[in-house]
């Protein structure tokens, strides 16, 4: 390992590698942000319409959810990146990664939102209908606000798992912090320092989110609405 201006101890190595790792982490955050946005949109839309009475609407959503929940994320990633080109649909690694993250996490978000909405007892729906509220108003003012309390805790938990899934993108050579970390480690042979920092980056995002999920769960217990 070439000597750095700061020496080759812990801080010396860290100073050298941190800029590279941070660039990788910036990519990680970007992949997460995009896929979170798309995933939540999928979850919101499909979650809301999944209470439809039309089987042609409900069943495909259920199939989508079960497939995404039953398969490892890596398989879905590989299918998008390796199998689709065979049918003429090609994506760059980055786009494939974001797409895969979006539709995989989207299924989980759908399931959580769907579950929350369905938990709000029919009597609430009927009361709202009796008041003459339209479907849109019913949803907006009665169902969704109450469902939010049931949705937010598991949603926060799922967002953490989603964030950790971005690491899997390293298997298709996307320059996220995991890929970069591995490259750096293979160059300087300092696994503890390199992966220590990488782990710290992930923990810096995940740990607060886990605490938030816990907080939400506790607040929910006290403001439980019983229908």
């Amino acid at each position: 390992m070439e000597p750095s201006a700061y020496g080759s101890g812990f801080w010396g190595v860290s100073a050298k590698i941190l800029p590279i790792l941070l660039r990788g982490f910036a990519n990680t955050l970007s992949y997460y942000a995009w896929s979170l946005l798309i995933g939540l949109m999928i979850g919101a839309v499909l979650g809301l319409i999944s209470s439809s009475r039309l089987r042609v609407v409900r069943y495909p959503i259920i199939v989508y959810i079960y497939i995404m929940r039953g398969l490892p994320f890596l398989i879905i990633l590989f299918v998008i990146y390796h199998v689709l080109p065979y049918f003429g649909v090609t994506f760059s690694a980055t786009y494939a990664g974001i797409l895969a993250l979006s539709i995989h996490s989207g299924a989980y978000y759908t399931e959580i939102i769907r579950g929350g909405i369905e938990s709000i007892h029919t009597s609430q729906r009927e009361a709202a209908i009796a008041l003459g509220l339209s479907y849109f108003h019913r949803m907006l003012y009665v169902i969704v606000p109450q469902a939010m309390r049931l949705i937010l805790p598991p949603l926060a938990g799922q967002m953490v798992l989603h964030f950790k899934d971005t690491a899997v993108l390293s298997l298709i050579a996307v320059p996220d912090v995991t890929t970069v970390g591995r490259q750096v480690m293979q160059a300087n042979r300092q696994p503890f320092i390199v992966f220590g920092w990488v782990a710290a980056f992930y923990a810096a995002i995940c740990y607060p989110m886990l605490k938030l999920a816990l907080l939400l769960e506790n607040r929910l217990k006290h403001s439980q609405v019983r229908s």
């Binding site: 995991t178 970390g181 696994p191 992930y202």
Partner: peptide, 13 residues
């Protein structure tokens, strides 16, 4: 620690 970091990183570690 184990809940806040991805499995891949733990494997590398």
């Amino acid at each position: 620690i184990f809940r806040s970091t991805p499995l891949i990183i733990q494997l590398y570690f």
